[in-house]
Computed example of a mutant assay.
Amino acid sequence: MTMAGSGSFRLVWKKTERSVEIMTIQVFSTVTDVSNAAASMVADQAKTAIARHGSFHLVLSGGTTPRHTLERLAEPPYATGIPWNKVHIFWGDERWVPPDDSRSNQHMARTALLDHVAVPAGQIFPIPYRQSPEEAAEGYESTLRRLFGKQPPRFDLLFLGLGTDGHVASLFPGTDAVMEQRRWVCHTQTQGPAADRITLTFPVINRARTIIFLATGEEKAPKVREILAAAGVPPRLPAQLVHPVNGEIYWLLDQAAASLLTEKI
């Protein structure tokens, strides 16, 4: 399967007798095209979820391409075409910074989208800023357990970015959080400013009905190829541990991020 230009293909894996994973990879000419496609998928998934159970549970991601997607959703036809009063908003991860900090994923989502559409305030569930990142993680897990009960939530749509080191959400290579199986939310650390992070863990991420990876730019190409070429190989990167149970994964890539995908993948 050559991915030199725009295109789409679907791969289906039957993991067990009771579990099926479907992966669709789509390559677009530009970052704008990726963002437009992601916004259209949000609208479609919202319609499906609301018809199924009366609400749409959406998990947001930080990053430049996700921001473009949120800005697109704040414009016609999505700003008025999506029934935002039935949308519930969550976050996959957050930096341990105040919510008005420019590095905050919540701040980004509010300025790009939530300040412009009619999601009820009581249906927006940001990761809290508490006295310590550990308390913030405990607080968010408590919120999820209050809302969803004993079993991890089954979000309708969950966005993930892809780090150049293969991390997703704030699950970084070599950290304990990657292997966490009990907690739904935990504190972890990375290098540089705002090193403390709060993140959903894989037991929650992999319960999502649909996961959308957004990856753009040439710097993402090596990891995109490594991840998508690694079927059947023991995972080395956090992104290789994303396997929704009876769910779908969509990879939305621009041509730069897909530039190393070849017929051998």
Results as ranks from 00 to 15, higher is better:
122 G>K: 06
60 L>D: 11
62 G>T: 03
135 E>F: 13
114 L>R: 08
79 A>L: 14
54 G>D: 11
150 K>G: 12
56 F>N: 05
98 P>G: 06
158 L>Q: 03
108 M>S: 13
61 S>H: 04
142 S>K: 04
139 G>V: 00
134 E>R: 07
152 P>C: 04
159 F>V: 00
51 A>F: 14
147 L>N: 02
155 F>I: 05
98 P>D: 04
165 D>E: 09
135 E>S: 13
176 D>V: 08
130 R>K: 11
63 G>I: 07
77 P>Q: 11
164 T>H: 10
135 E>N: 11
186 C>G: 10
149 G>P: 12
94 E>G: 01
134 E>I: 06
69 T>Y: 06
108 M>Q: 11
174 G>F: 00
170 S>P: 02
159 F>H: 05
152 P>D: 01
61 S>C: 09
112 A>F: 00
133 P>D: 01
125 F>D: 01
149 G>E: 05
141 E>I: 02
112 A>I: 00
165 D>W: 01
111 T>L: 14
55 S>D: 14
167 H>Y: 08
136 A>V: 01
165 D>F: 11
84 W>R: 10
159 F>C: 05
179 M>T: 15
126 P>W: 05
171 L>N: 10
124 I>K: 06
120 P>E: 01
173 P>L: 06
94 E>I: 05
69 T>G: 03
74 A>P: 09
176 D>I: 09
157 L>I: 08
131 Q>M: 02
105 N>L: 00
166 G>N: 08
160 L>K: 03
56 F>R: 02
162 L>W: 08
82 I>A: 09
77 P>W: 07
154 R>D: 01
73 L>C: 09
166 G>Q: 03
79 A>G: 09
159 F>S: 07
87 V>L: 13
153 P>T: 00
93 D>Q: 05
82 I>P: 07
167 H>M: 12
176 D>Y: 12
63 G>P: 13
81 G>N: 09
119 V>W: 07
143 T>V: 07
170 S>A: 02
125 F>G: 03
70 L>Q: 10
106 Q>T: 15
96 W>G: 04
91 W>Q: 11
181 Q>A: 14
121 A>C: 10
